[in-house]
Amino acid sequence: MNNLICRYTVQELLPVVSFLSEKFTGRESTSVTYERANQLMGAVIYCINKNPDAQTFKSAQSAYTKGYKLLVEKVKSTKALFEQIQEEFISFGNRAYYETVTKGMPAFFIKYDPRFNPLNKVLTLDYPTIIPVHNLEGVDAIHQYLLYISLEQDFLKAFAGSDIERVLAGYHPQYEDLFINLAQIIYRNVIGCLIADKNILDLQLDSGDLEEIKKFLKDKTKSELVNNIHVLTEVMVKKSFENNRDLLEYLWADGNDFCAEIINARENNCLESIFYICNN
């Protein structure tokens, strides 16, 4: 709420808050608590800010009314996006992934209150996406989160489920119970496959491949590595994912951390903690 900025003055916003307060109390109470007034003021500003052309409206009330309509539309489009994801959603056995998407999202659409509390995300979004959505509020956060989940699903579904589960089990035997991002782990192994010149769809690396990776990484500075891995990611997205730029941007959000971890692993001679070796 404190981060919300609005072009209208408090004086102009108060009548809208009063209108909303009347609706909230059903005209049965002339006063509300500070917390409630703060929440309602947040709701008004959030809706007004939904308007790309809020400054063209004569009053804060008309900007709010239009913004509220846009907010309801966004909830509808977010629900449609969720239903589309839900149809073929695969959690690969990870409980946080399953519960956040399959159980949490329907609860969001039941409990979300666009009129009086639109800033509330309702969900804790336990499954972490590569790019966090903590800086967003309400349905904006959920919509962005679902867009990321959709990108992840597109990415993960390119591989066989059994291969993904094998790599995840290599990451941690109890990967099902961890709050980890699955796409990030698979992406890192795909990069390993590309460096070792293996078929990325197999997600198979052996100890010989690890030697290849070590050779590739030898004497590379972090900036060189960042450039190389970015090129490899671009190649992967171009060849296997119809040059989906959103996917590239999403996966590459992990790029700098990934390179730092590789350099650390190289120095400590433990690259197998990033690129999982298949023992069969």
Binding site: S18, S21, T30, S31, V32, T33, A37
Partner: peptide
């Protein structure tokens, strides 16, 4: 009182 009780009142009051 409204300040002490941390409440905001709209309209003609109680």
């Amino acid at each position: 009182t409204l300040r002490d009780q941390q409440r905001v009142e709209f309209g003609e009051g109680i």
